[in-house]
Every structure is written in C-alpha cells, then in structure tokens.
Simulated assay, not measured.
Amino acid sequence: MDPQLPQTIDAYLERIGAPRPARPDAPALRELQLRHLTTVPFENLSIHLGEDIVLEEKALLDKIVAGRRGGFCYELNGAFAVLLRALGFRVTLLQARVHGDGGRLGIPYDHLALRVETDDGTGPWLADVGFGDHAERPLLLDDRTDQQDPRGTFRIARVHAEAGGDHGDVDVLRDGAPQFRLDPRPRALDDFRGGAWYHRTSPDSGFTRAPVCSRFTATGRITLSGRRLLTTVGGERHETRLEGDEEVLAAYREHFGVLLDRLPPEGGVGVEAGLSAPNG
C-alpha cells in the first residue's frame, strides 16, 4: 500500500467537504456520493488541453485531490473507488455501454460504474459519480422496481438473452429512458484503457467535440461548454454567453474550482457539442 494513502484520503475527504464516516454503511455512501457530485466536476478538459490521461490509482488521486480537477467516468469513478475502499466499503468496477440515439449501444467499456457493498446489510449499491446528469443517490443494484431519486425515477431492468443480456446484464433507466447497459462481471482499472483511448481520440466520441465542465448543484446543475454557461434551477435552464478569456477562466475558478493557465480550444473534432454534459 502507498504509505501516503492515509494522508491522501484525508485530503480527498477535505476536497469534497465530507467528514470521515464512522462506518461504511448506506447513509455514509449516499453522503459521499452527493458531496462528490457537487464538488468534483465532470469534465473533459484534459482531452482538449493535450494533457495525458493515466488510468492508475495514484495518477487519478493526484489529478482529483492534489490538482483539484475533475475528469470523465474512468477518472471520477476510478478515484471514488479508491476512496470508498480506503473507508471500508467493498467495491467492484463494472463496465457499461451507453445507450445512444435510436437505441444504439456504445462501445464495450464505454462507461465505468461501481458496485458497492456496505456493512449494514443493505445493497449491493450502484454508485456513480461519473455519468454527467444522473442519479443523486446510489441505486439498489438488485431492485427491479422504480427507485425515486431527487433527479428522477430510476429503474434497473434485466436484459433478456434475446436482447443481448448474456451475462446477466441490466439496463439502467431514468424516467423510462435507458441510460446504459451494465455488465455485472468484475473488471480491473486496466480493462478500461481502450475505452478511455477511444473517447479521447475518436471523432465519434462526444468528448472530442468541445470542452465541457459540469457539476451538480443543490438546485440543479451548472455547465460550462466553450463560452456558454448553462445553469439549471428547478428544471429551468438559463444560458449566459461569456465574453473574453478572463471571464471564462474566472468561471472555471468560481463555479468549478478549476484553475487553468490557458483555455482549451473551442470546438473540436466533428460538430459542436451540446450544452449537456456527455455521459460516460
């Protein structure tokens, strides 16, 4: 074990404004997920700034804790898994394929999510701090009924074999719309390198199209895409066009805690991205 890990975990908890939980139970998991979602942004800035993305635990902690940055699913959920394990939770990495337009499934290892077991006899839980606009609370992984969340009604539904559910796959739905298809077999962080490479290089990936930085707020969500600042409050969206590089850099600092010395180029490969954060 890294001898610096205990201090890093303390710094991680400080980063997300969370006290160290007394025990690894379901209420603690809910609190940690919410704190993470509201403090650590979902962002793809490294792709547009030409920064390397390293799927190793120390590198992820260095970026998110010491560097006070965010990341996309592989980075956010990869780091969150390290935090949870250090606090006594039992964590398994799971791969998922994101549902796209027309029911098309994305590539294998499109998304990294977490199966989390607690010590209070509840769960297992599906925890996720890396899917953009998604559930605020962990979801009961084995529950096949509707699960109410401040961000919508979620359901985890079995995928039958004729629909491609050969390994006990399940679809995660939000308000009736499928979000991603989850494979329950355990994975390792190295398994996601191909998916991360695809999403940082392919013109077919939503992450290469435009820089996006987004996080949960108490009342909705705030997203910065290029020079457009979008806030969602109680279901109502408000857009502000930012003028000048300094105003954009200030928005990264003030709304996301991200300190940049230069702006990522606007645009990217393919068409301009929409205002919502990409998922994955």
Rank of each mutant, 00 (worst) to 15 (best):
R221Q: 09
T232L: 01
G17E: 10
R69N: 01
G102F: 07
D143H: 00
G70T: 03
I107N: 15
T145S: 08
D133A: 14
C213K: 00
G234T: 06
A11S: 10
L87R: 06
D10L: 07
D10A: 12
Q147C: 05
A26I: 02
G103Q: 01
D133I: 11
P264C: 00
G67P: 02
D204Y: 15
D120N: 04
Y12C: 04
E31A: 15
L140V: 02
V129G: 03
E75T: 07
Y198H: 12
V248K: 04
P278L: 06
H167E: 15
P27K: 03
H199T: 13
R151Q: 15
R215M: 07
L229E: 01
P41A: 02
E43K: 01
L140T: 06
Q147K: 03
P41K: 00
A161C: 01
T8V: 10
L34E: 12
W125A: 04
E236W: 09
P3L: 07
F192G: 14
G102K: 09
L260S: 08
D146R: 05
Q33N: 10
Q179W: 09
A28P: 07
S205C: 13
D142W: 04
G257A: 00
Y12S: 06
L224D: 03
R97F: 02
P108K: 04
W197Y: 15
L105M: 07
D175F: 13
I9Q: 06
F80M: 10
R35M: 06
Q4N: 08
D175W: 13
D183R: 10
L114K: 06
S214R: 03
D190H: 07
P178T: 11
G102S: 09
P265D: 11
R158I: 14
A196I: 09
L141D: 03
R23M: 13
E162I: 15
Y74S: 10
R68Q: 09
E246A: 14
W125L: 04
L55R: 06
R237V: 11
F42M: 06
A59S: 15
D183Q: 07
D133C: 10
T8I: 10
A157S: 13
L230D: 12
G88D: 04
D204T: 15
R35A: 13
L93G: 10
T208Y: 00
D128T: 05
P124E: 02
D190K: 05
G78C: 13
C73Q: 08
F131K: 04
F192L: 14
E236K: 12
